[in-house]
Design a protein around this nucleic acid. Structure first.
Lengths: 245, 245
DNA sequence: GCAACTTTGTGCGTGTGTTCACAAGTACCT
DNA sequence: AGGTACTTGTGAACACACGCACAAAGTTGC
């Protein structure tokens, strides 16, 4: 699957397919680190420095970036501004993404007011809630509308990404309606597993899952410490493991 | 590394070490699905059913559960209540985890009021904020205290997990102070990469990262659709890929 | 008590991701 | 111009994860 002209076609083809999921998941982290460097006026950065800032191994960083193309200069490093642009382009952040947030409870409020979206090309264009008491309120400069209007809002506002911040039981139905409008990207904060047709991407953020994973490792550390404190031989002393993020 | 007596020692040893990270990350999902089944009065469940509910492959589910021990019955399935207990125990949810939330902005509010914590053994025992205007407010039944009191609060309340919901710039300093008190588990919502000494676990939840990953796939889908619409040959027709969660 | 059926637990092939280590390329100094 | 120092990009080995497919083990019905 590696023809001679692949090298020529790389820039076109590899941007359409072939970037590993694990790499895509790290690009936003690199982007954030680079943006910070740019604000501090740093012009170029080595893979070693950037890797440290992003909290990853430098070889991994180089391999990740190599999937986008050869944007570094040997002996020097990467030009910060240029790399910011290339990663932004690859992630699709050079265009505006119009987002609807469904569910304006505590979390919906937080999301609507979260500054990190706007700076990355995401515009929250509508807020929906099922509760008549919430509908009509103004949050983050937007009037909250009824979930009854979901289909109208998506069409009228040209929404392409839906964010679900509702209680669990309501999420699947609203997700189905989002999918019904043609939306194929959903970010789900509700504590349920959504089922969607093929071709629709769902990403899930679960607050309590993260705490549970921490609790597991904390328990494990406590158990290990207990063993050490009990004064056993140093047989397990090599177990200085670190947990990957 | 597989001695004959490993089988006997499995239950003791494997609960302390040897559960793959990927498995640990899925246990909370299984737990949620099982809790739901228990509430509906379901007594036993097959790996096939549970896998569907959790959105994973059934073989993967069985292998995950096998790491905890042989808690299923061939020909029957798994007893729901028993499995709930075993997973809870493995994750350390049979004990109370005392949590401090630092940063009581929109997100901090949402976290303080989030019901999903209490039901899993996590108790929010203190809220801290640097803003004098916020200090003294009552949120989720707790009086917000100053971040100046961080060390006192952690010691007095027996906090073992810290949650950072501050703006980016404040996070590293507060994280250092948490670590200084002896805390080794931190959940970070601030948009920065925290650096911590060995032995401290940091998990990061980044709202905008998730949207960026969605945007990448959305862009990719749009590009593919454009190719199809352009009426090329059916050479790429097999590309009906699905994106893993 | 035996046969047919169901479902778990796992060996194994496959694929993806990570890391090391180094050749190749670039800049700078003399 | 040539040598030295530095950094990228990547081949190759390794580690981890996934999912098929099946033997082992249990249940049900006759």
């Amino acid at each position: 699957m590696t023809t001679p002209q692949d090298r020529l076609a790389r820039d076109t083809r590899e941007s359409v397919r072939g970037i590993p999921d694990a790499t895509v998941a790290r690009l936003p982290v690199y982007l954030r680190a680079l943006t910070e460097l740019a604000e501090r006026g740093v012009a170029t950065v080595s893979s070693e420095e950037l890797a440290t800032a992003a909290g990853v191994n430098s070889a991994k960083l180089r391999k990740d970036l190599s999937h986008l193309g050869s944007y570094g200069t040997r002996g020097v490093g990467y030009e910060v501004e240029y790399l910011v642009y290339q990663i932004s382009r690859e992630l699709g952040l050079t265009q505006e993404w119009r987002v609807v947030i469904i569910g304006v409870g505590n979390l919906g409020h937080a999301l609507a007011n979260y500054g990190g979206f706007a700076s990355r090309g995401f515009t929250v264009v509508a807020l929906l809630d099922a509760d008549p008491d919430v509908v009509g309120e103004h949050v983050a400069g937007l009037r909250v509308r009824s979930t009854d209007e979901l289909e109208d809002v998506v069409a009228a506002e040209g929404v392409s990404i839906g964010v679900l911040a509702t209680p669990g039981p309501a999420a699947q139905d609203l997700c189905d309606r989002l999918v019904g409008t043609g939306i194929t990207s959903v970010l789900n904060f509700a504590p349920v597993v959504l089922s969607v047709p093929e071709g629709v991407d769902v990403r899930k953020v679960d607050l309590s899952t993260e705490l549970q994973i921490l609790a597991f490792h904390e328990q494990r550390k406590a158990a290990r410490d207990a063993v050490h404190a009990a004064g056993l031989t140093a047989a397990d002393e090599h177990d200085a493991e670190e947990v990957a993020q």
